[in-house]
Deep mutational scan, measured.
Amino acid sequence: PEDLERKVRELQKNGVSPEQIEKILRRDGVDEREVQELVKKVS
C-alpha cells in the first residue's frame, strides 16, 4: 500500500537500516512478501 511505502521511505530517510525496517514491518503485521517488496524498493 501507498502509506506503507511512504513509511518505509521516511524510516530510510531517518537512517534506519533495511534490516530494522524489515523488523518494524513484520512487527506491524505486514505480510512477508510485502515486506520483501518494500525493502527492495528502498535498498
Results as ranks from 00 to 15, higher is better:
Lys13Gly: 05
Lys40Cys: 09
Gln12Glu: 05
Glu2Met: 13
Glu34Thr: 15
Pro18Gln: 10
Arg33Gly: 08
Val39Ile: 15
Gly29Phe: 02
Arg9Ser: 04
Arg26Ser: 06
Leu4Ile: 07
Gln12Asp: 03
Val16Thr: 06
Pro1Thr: 12
Glu19Asp: 09
Val16Ser: 06
Arg27His: 08
Arg26Asn: 03
Arg6Met: 11
Glu37Gln: 08
Glu22Arg: 13
Glu5Lys: 10
Arg33His: 09
Val42His: 05
Arg33Lys: 13
Ser43Cys: 14
Gln20Leu: 07
Gly15Cys: 08
Lys41Asn: 08
Leu25Ser: 00
Val35Gly: 02
Glu2Leu: 13
Ser43Asp: 06
Arg33Met: 09
Pro1His: 13
Glu10Leu: 14
Val35Met: 05
Lys40Trp: 12
Leu4Gly: 01
Lys23Tyr: 10
Val30Arg: 03
Glu10Tyr: 13
Leu4Phe: 05
Gly29Met: 03
Asp31Asn: 09
Leu4Lys: 03
Arg33Trp: 10
Pro1Gln: 12
Asp3Glu: 12
Val30Pro: 01
Glu19His: 08
Pro1Ser: 12
Ile24Pro: 00
Ile21Glu: 01
Asn14His: 11
Val39Asp: 01
Lys41Ala: 09
Glu10Cys: 15
Gln36Lys: 10
Val42Leu: 14
Lys23Gly: 08
Glu5Arg: 11
Glu22Ser: 09
Asn14Val: 07
Glu5Gly: 05
Val35Glu: 01
Asn14Tyr: 10
Gly29Thr: 01
Asn14Met: 14
Glu10Ala: 11
Gly15Met: 03
Val8Trp: 07
Lys13Cys: 08
Leu38Pro: 01
Val35Ala: 11
Val39Met: 15
Pro18Thr: 12
Val35Gln: 01
Val8Met: 03
Leu11Cys: 03
Glu22Asn: 04
Arg33Pro: 04
Asp3Ile: 08
Glu34Phe: 14
Lys23Asn: 12
Gln12Lys: 12
Pro18Leu: 15
Val39Asn: 02
Asp3Leu: 10
Leu4Gln: 03
Asp3Trp: 13
Lys40Asn: 11
Glu34Met: 15
Glu32Asp: 06
Gln12Cys: 14
Ile24His: 02
Lys40Arg: 11
Glu34Trp: 14
Arg27Gln: 11
Gly15Lys: 04
Gln12Arg: 14
Pro1Asn: 13
Lys41Gly: 08
Arg6Thr: 09
Glu10Gln: 12
Val42Gly: 05
Gln36Pro: 02
Arg26Pro: 00
Glu5Asp: 05
Lys7Val: 08
Glu32Ile: 08
Leu38Glu: 01
Leu25Asn: 00
Lys23Pro: 01
Ser17Lys: 06
Gln20His: 06
Ser43Asn: 10
Leu25Lys: 00
Glu5Ser: 07
Glu10Thr: 11
Glu19Lys: 09
Leu38Ser: 02
Gln36Asn: 06
Asp31Pro: 13
Ser43Ile: 15
Pro1Cys: 10
Lys7His: 05
Ser17Met: 04
Gln36Met: 09
Lys41Leu: 14
Ile24Glu: 03
Arg6Leu: 09
Arg26Ile: 13
Pro18Lys: 13
Arg26Lys: 07
Leu4Asp: 01
Pro1Ile: 13
Glu10Ser: 07
Val16Cys: 12
Gly15Val: 01
Asp28Ile: 15
Glu22Lys: 14
Arg9Thr: 03
Gln36Ser: 06
Ser43His: 10
Ile21Gly: 00
Asn14Cys: 12
Arg9Glu: 03
Arg9Asp: 02
Gln36Cys: 10
Val39Arg: 03
Arg6Gln: 11
Gly29Lys: 02
Glu34Ser: 12
Pro18Trp: 15
Glu19Thr: 07
Glu2Gly: 13
Lys7Met: 11
Gln36Phe: 05
Ile21Ala: 01
Ile21Gln: 01
